[in-house]
């Protein structure tokens, strides 16, 4: 019974995931694309929960959905008219064909590698404890095994914040420059 429920949830979430991803890539209005991405994030959070990553799912929704996407929407709203039309790529048709081929090739290879070549190595996942993926577990790992990653990540965030400020202020002082 539980298996069946999980399967249904999985199918639904997967469907939403793919559909929203395709929506992001295909809509011409970037505002709608951003909204689709929010949907993508939500379905991914469901999938993370199914995989036992409770903390990650929460972080996904809070950080990604709550911060990053809000920033996106803000910028899109700020740019307003300039983002009305986000056209598709132009250029020689052979590039389109090559693109599709390359993407298809990558997909095929991954599927082949994972599903067929792994020799059944991915078929049996071990049982996990109830505290798998809990904030306590994540926190312990962050502060013991992966402390350096933790610290470096925070430095990167700091750098990004500084970069954002610099980019913003630069524009103000050089108002009226010619187009590059």
């Amino acid at each position: 019974m539980a298996n069946f429920v999980v399967w249904c949830v999985w199918v639904g979430a997967a469907f939403c995931c793919i559909a929203s991803a395709l929506a992001v890539v295909t809509f011409s209005n970037p505002f709608f694309s951003a909204l689709a991405l929010i949907g993508n994030l939500a379905s991914l959070a469901v999938l993370y929960l199914l995989l036992g990553g409770a903390f990650v799912a929460a972080a996904q929704v809070l950080v990604y959905g709550g911060a990053v996407m809000v920033m996106f929407l803000f910028v899109i709203a700020y740019l307003g008219d300039k983002t009305d039309q986000a056209p598709w790529a132009s250029g020689p048709s052979w590039q389109a064909v090559a693109t599709v081929l390359a993407a298809g090739a990558i997909l095929t290879e991954i599927i082949v590698a994972v599903a067929l070549e792994s020799g059944g190595g991915l078929s049996h996942s071990p049982r996990i404890a109830g505290s798998f993926g809990s904030p306590a577990a994540i926190g312990r790992l962050f502060l013991t095994d992966h402390l350096i990653a933790f610290e470096v990540t925070s430095i990167v965030l700091l750098v990004a914040a500084v970069g954002g400020v610099v980019l913003g202020s630069h524009a103000r002082s050089l108002q009226g420059d010619a187009r590059s």
């Binding site: 990053v68 965030l157 954002g164």
Partner: peptide
């Protein structure tokens, strides 16, 4: 996720 957030900051900037 954290890195993606930083990258989005710079990109949007």
């Amino acid at each position: 996720m954290a890195i993606a957030a930083s990258e989005v900051v710079v990109g949007l900037g």
